[in-house]
């Protein structure tokens, strides 16, 4: 009887660390930290031949951005560096001095904000087949940034919070938080609607 008692030993846990290390290495190798961050865009629906062409837009309402195969930018007929694009786009979208060559405004009744002048701006982006993807993303990013900065500005002025914060709030799980934020986001978007139109691609040089 006494013998049996002696055989009840503790299980040796020394190899536990080895097993855990093995699992740890497995997970380290098979997994990636890459998250799915990106610039979200909506493509235009496919062209239908029978569709009527849209009415022409006045030149002053269009901000033309061209990118060529040498990764040079032509903005409104002038050669421009990518670093200046954001300011140029902001100037165009907001037209703070109501210049004649920049876009027209239309009074629009915006929920929460009342009557607001809304610019008839459209940004037209055209790239060559030889343009690098890097430049394309930079252009998209700068244009998006221009819109976001203007929206931030307006939102701070009217609601006292940044637009980016409102957007985060609108995704919140609490309806009491999300609902008012959604309304505000909608109002700000109405004043500065994002209109980036991408022209059908064309081939010029390699």
């Amino acid at each position: 009887m006494a013998r049996n008692k002696r055989e009840l030993q503790e299980i040796n846990a020394g190899s536990m660390a080895d097993i855990a290390f093995l699992l740890l290495v497995f997970f380290l190798v098979t997994t990636t930290m890459d998250s799915s961050w990106g610039l979200s865009r909506k493509l235009p629906p496919p062209l239908i031949d029978t569709q009527e062409p849209p009415p022409p837009i006045k030149d002053r309402n269009v901000f033309v951005v061209l990118a060529n195969a040498n990764d040079q930018l032509l903005v409104e007929g002038e050669l421009m560096d990518i670093s200046q694009l954001r300011e140029a786009a902001k100037e165009f979208i907001a037209n703070p001095n109501r210049k004649d060559e920049l876009p027209e405004f239309k009074e629009v009744d915006v929920n929460l904000l009342g009557k607001m002048p809304v610019s008839k701006q459209v940004i037209s982006l055209q790239n060559d087949n030889g343009t690098s993807y890097k430049l394309y993303i930079q252009v998209q990013n700068e244009l998006e940034a221009a819109y976001n900065e203007l929206r931030d500005q307006l939102s701070l002025e009217k609601f006292g919070t940044k637009y980016s914060i409102l957007e985060d709030l609108a995704k919140s799980d609490l309806p009491s938080e999300a609902e008012p934020a959604k309304e505000k986001v909608k109002a700000v978007r109405q004043v500065y609607p994002q209109r980036i139109s991408e022209a059908e691609p064309k081939e010029t040089g390699n």
């Binding site: 979200s40 865009r41 493509l43 790239n127 087949n129 030889g130 394309y136």
Partner: peptide
């Protein structure tokens, strides 16, 4: 180069897969 990316985007438009994200 953008050529191949544009081709892909045109194909996506044809199948009405319009929500995209540039990672």
């Amino acid at each position: 180069k953008m050529g191949i990316v544009t081709d892909v985007k045109q194909q996506l438009r044809k199948v009405q897969s319009l929500k995209i994200s540039y990672s």
